[in-house]
């Protein structure tokens, strides 16, 4: 009996009563227990308050319009087209998941990945190194394009398996009316070390093509969240100095991202 009473007075039961989750008989018994115990009354008030605390805090998305890029994704995203752009690993994974019974696909995939990974590390292009090797694979990857397509200036985006991070620093429209973004390439582990700087411009097929990339000499530099004009004369800074008057502000960039890079 004592165990039953303890159960009725547990946090979970008091909370369930507050949330209206108990059947009438259990609710009556828990209510009686609460009425005779000030500590349980406090607990009930606490559970009630947590609901009112959270009420409305995150409701902005329920009132505002859904961003155009999200609607476009849901209405127009074509997974088959996307699949054709996927890498060999993703396709192998899909192949195994279709062809083999569980848990064989997982095992087979692990074997394939280990083999491929070994070959990749031995012969292939290594992940981004401090000396800048591996950059080509990164700046032509879908995750890099996605980071520039979707991230406001100042945000650091991890590029997953590519072992690198990119951070758009400034955005402008160039003389050919293309949107371009100056970005920092950051070391995968260190929060602030910049490995390289580049400028990529957006093409008609939503591709972000890097037009200039400058490796940063091995030294510790802090990533900045906004663009600061540079005094040096390297190709990246030269372009940026030329485009200073065409820089877009934070709000303009956010709007462009929301509108899928359409409009001024």
């Amino acid at each position: 009996m004592a165990t039953m009473d303890e159960h009725l007075c547990s946090d979970e039961m008091v909370m369930a009563l507050v949330d209206g989750e108990l059947d009438p008989e259990t609710a009556r018994r828990v209510s009686e227990a609460i009425e005779s115990d000030p500590a349980l009354q406090k607990k009930a008030v606490m559970f009630e308050q947590t609901v009112s605390m959270l009420e409305g805090v995150y409701d902005a998305p329920m009132r505002e319009e859904v961003p155009a890029h999200l609607l476009k994704t849901v209405r127009e995203y074509d997974p088959d087209r996307d699949r054709s752009k996927q890498g060999i690993f993703a396709r192998l994974q899909q192949f195994f998941s279709r062809q083999l019974p569980q848990p064989a696909p997982a095992f087979a995939l692990v074997v394939v990945i280990l083999l491929a990974g070994g070959l990749y590390l031995h012969y292939g292009q290594r992940p981004l190194q401090p000396d800048g090797s591996g950059v080509q694979a990164i700046v032509t990857s879908p995750s890099f394009a996605r980071a520039l397509e979707r991230s406001p200036d100042g945000r650091i985006v991890a590029l997953g398996a590519l072992h690198a991070r990119v951070s758009p620093v400034a955005t402008f429209m160039d003389r050919h009316n293309r949107f371009c973004r100056r970005y920092d390439m950051l070391a995968p582990e260190d929060d602030n070390r910049i490995i390289g700087r580049g400028i990529a411009c957006r093409g008609q097929e939503k591709e972000w093509r890097t037009i200039v990339y400058q490796q940063v000499p091995e030294q510790t530099q802090k990533a900045s969240s906004s663009y600061e004009p540079a005094a040096s004369d390297n190709p990246v800074d030269r372009i940026m100095n030329r485009e200073l008057s065409n820089l877009l502000n934070e709000q303009q960039v956010r709007k462009l991202i929301d509108r899928d890079w359409t409009g001024p």
């Binding site: 805090v57 995150y58 902005a60």
Partner: peptide, 25 residues
């Protein structure tokens, strides 16, 4: 609702939208 859910998980609207976009894809 998906955006509200993602916002409550991340606390950042832009990050929430990225998450919802990836989830929809």
């Amino acid at each position: 609702r998906l955006r509200r859910f993602a916002l409550s998980l991340t606390g950042d609207m832009a990050e929430a939208d990225d998450l919802v976009q990836a989830a929809c894809e």
